[in-house]
């Protein structure tokens, strides 16, 4: 019985990210675990505590992504793995999904793969579904709560969020799920946890180790640009009373044809 959580590092959410003169994306701030993955990694550890299962935290990427793996180890995941070789340098979600599926298959005894809902940096909300298809497993996305999970009986029941409300979905294991914020209260590493994680070996599996070719991408990024500045400066609305300010604002909004 084995749960794999897939994660990566992203620039700190408050980072000032810009495109420099050569068209490269740059920032100075540190990398942190993808904010959505605080929930997925915590959910894996909560499952481990409740069900006596093995947990693996997996990333695909360069060494910087070990930050996210270490956070998983520091809060209680059993082992970390990084998948990487140079053929993944400009990988798109198809190539990543082949890599994650191959790693999950190599681990062998996996019942559940957990993702965060999306990447806060270059996210497309695609990896989850593509990994599911590459594994041939069912996918339940945007999970807000795991209501029941029975590793022996191979069933899971969850609440998931869709635009119009919440659905209760029952399914079979093995499965791939993605989890949203508020599924749990994220766990943060303790000092001891950080020490343990910093000593852990994180093996790197390349295409040869996995016995697969990550294949060709379907998409490439051809350019990065800074977005246009918002037009104009703020217009402050003054007045002697709340009523007067409200009238002035509403007038402006009608003039601008916003309403």
């Amino acid at each position: 019985m084995h749960v794999v959580v897939v994660t990566k590092s992203t620039p700190d959410t408050a980072a000032k990210v810009t495109v420099d003169g050569s068209g490269n994306v740059t920032w100075k701030e540190a990398m942190v675990i993808n904010p959505w993955d605080e929930y997925s990694v915590t959910e894996a550890v909560l499952l481990k505590e409740a069900h006596n299962i093995k947990t693996t935290v997996l990333t695909v990427g360069e060494e910087a992504h070990n930050e996210a793996v270490k956070q998983g180890l520091a809060i209680g995941c059993d082992q970390g793995i990084r998948v990487w070789d140079s053929t993944l340098a400009n990988a798109d979600s198809l190539q990543y999904s082949r890599a994650v599926a191959a790693a999950v298959q190599k681990l062998g005894d996996v019942d559940l793969v957990i993702f965060g809902k999306e990447q806060a940096d270059t996210g497309t909300d695609q990896h989850v579904y593509q990994v599911g298809r590459k594994l041939g497993w069912n996918v339940i996305g945007s999970v807000f709560k795991i209501q029941e999970i029975d590793f022996a009986g191979k069933t899971i029941k969850v609440v998931r969020l869709v635009e119009q409300g919440k659905q209760v979905v029952a399914g079979k294991l093995p499965a791939v799920i993605s989890v949203v914020k508020d599924i749990n209260e994220p766990k943060y590493p303790s000092f001891m946890g950080i020490r343990k994680a910093s000593k852990a070996e994180i093996p790197v599996w390349d295409g040869a180790a996995l016995g697969v070719d990550f294949g060709l991408p379907g998409v490439k990024v051809s350019a990065y640009q800074n977005p246009p500045e918002r037009a104009g400066k703020v217009q402050m609305i003054d007045g002697d009373s709340a009523d007067e300010k409200a009238r002035k604002l509403v007038e402006k909004l009608f003039e601008d044809k916003v309403l």
Partner: peptide
Amino acid sequence: LKAVHPVYSGKVLSTIEIVS
């Protein structure tokens, strides 16, 4: 097909293309 996709929480815009 060619498209614009906002990345890094909208701090950057990427131009993306299909290559398959």
